[in-house]
Design a protein around this nucleic acid. Structure first.
Lengths: 258, 258
DNA sequence: CGTATGATTGAGGACTTTCAAGCCAAGTGG
DNA sequence: CCACTTGGCTTGAAAGTCCTCAATCATACG
């Protein structure tokens, strides 16, 4: 039997909940039977605006979604990135008035899952209530790591750290192979996430490339030297609360001789 | 009847929960009867270390507490600041293995509230469960704002924004009067919070002072021109989810003529 | 094939850091 | 009561990182 995109996204969502929390069989079923029709959003469209009164949370089915803030001069700071299986604004259950807008960085498919249903689930199932709460907390911990990244590292380190994080997160959804994962993000958007200009992002990527650590072409990132990159980034994946074994993705934990 | 420091801190904690969530009378009583003896921590001491297995959450009774991250070179990034009435690591209910260390920036009094008791409370009282969850989410939203601050604003703007935020938070606990509040933080620590060096913090504070916007002396910050400062900071208090009326604290919303 | 979006590179300037020194207020001990 | 110490604040000069402006290049697409 073929499974649709909705089912696939729900499985990813469930899988991540299970990695971080204890989920019972009935809770598992409840999550997998969540409703909501997939809908498409074109690249660069802000599909949630600041202050919107939300009645649904967005589950990413396909593509890359960003949560961001915008200043008066129009410049943006991306505050989090979301891959398929992420419930982008699960926190909106607690803050239905959107505290940050959401943008589709690429063409995206999302499912709007009604708050009402999520609340019912959390009400009926203690385990899911905790799991949702915990996921919100982990999301916060990731933002905190980004703050450390932007506050303390130089451009090269910031990019390295982001790439490490995204590699682990793409591994979790089975989209990391031979060190490559589909990071469909422009250098402009990377700059918005890292507190840099696209020009400087470009130069720093060049440095990392010349060091033999990474490669980035046409929406795909490849990590050539996991040990080297994590060392540059001072990356410790603990904060993601995901299992990760680099050697299972063609990223032998051996620093190349240069 | 005199109330002890524990009772005072619990009242501040409860007050903030009530501002952000619907709390029933029985829930109110339950919060106020939380146990835990006050204990003192001397300035600069890291009283929670990375990876500690926690069995309590820390409620600040007095002083200023910081959550931070430390890099290999010893440099630190402060990720959040906590004033009296804040349950610093409420999130530890969901992540008992400390994801960030905690430091006393000043001499501090805290109460360690057992997770067990908080869990019982959340289990018995739906409203408290939501309130705790929501508070975790708001804490995350504050960190996200800090990320925007560090990622997008220059030193002057960052300091202005932090001062605005802390003014609102001190107002909430009744510690803002005539634009002054007790921000007992060194310029070194300010730098650690804002991704700057203390030298540059110093120069930027000087600028703000010369512009007639603020004054900072001996552990006390004074906002001389609220409108001017919020304008420099592009500050919008919404993300704090606290009530705030500047004119009630001797901070008329009128920009001074310079 | 022209157009558009994103990547790349150069040059100059702005903001921030580093290193170093001096200052000031508060606390300590003789 | 006063030298002495200490932690934190202040300032100067030089260097470094990152930004701005601008032009060129590459790739995809209608």
């Amino acid at each position: 039997m073929e499974i649709g995109p909705r089912q696939a996204a729900l499985r990813l969502f469930l899988l991540r909940l299970e990695v971080r929390s204890q989920i019972s069989a009935s809770e598992r079923e409840a999550v997998l039977s969540l409703s909501g029709q997939p809908q498409k959003v074109v690249a660069h469209h802000d599909f949630v605006r600041l202050g919107d009164e939300l009645e649904d949370a967005c589950l990413v089915v396909d593509g890359l979604v960003a949560r961001f803030a915008q200043l008066e001069d129009g410049s943006r700071q991306i505050v989090s990135l979301h891959v398929p299986g992420d419930m982008v604004d699960l926190y909106s259950l607690m803050l239905p008035r959107a505290p940050s807008p959401l943008q589709a960085l690429t063409n995206v498919t999302i499912i709007k899952v009604p708050h009402r249903i999520l609340r019912e689930l959390a009400f009926e199932h203690r385990g899911l209530s905790s799991a949702f709460w915990r996921d919100c907390v982990v999301d916060g911990a990731i933002v905190a790591q980004w703050l450390v990244n932007v506050g303390r590292r130089n451009a090269r380190g910031r990019i390295a750290h982001l790439l490490c994080e995204m590699a682990v997160r793409y591994a979790q959804i089975g989209a990391l192979a031979n060190g490559s994962f589909p990071l469909a993000i422009t250098q402009d958007q990377l700059g918005e996430a890292l507190g840099l200009t696209s020009v400087h992002v470009n130069r720093s990527i060049k440095t990392l490339r010349e060091e033999g650590l990474i490669q980035m072409i046409r929406g795909s990132a490849t990590i050539l030297d996991w040990a080297g990159l994590t060392s540059v980034a001072e990356f410790d994946p603990g904060y993601l609360h995901l299992p990760f074994a680099p050697e299972r993705h063609g990223m032998a934990n051996v620093r190349q001789v240069r």
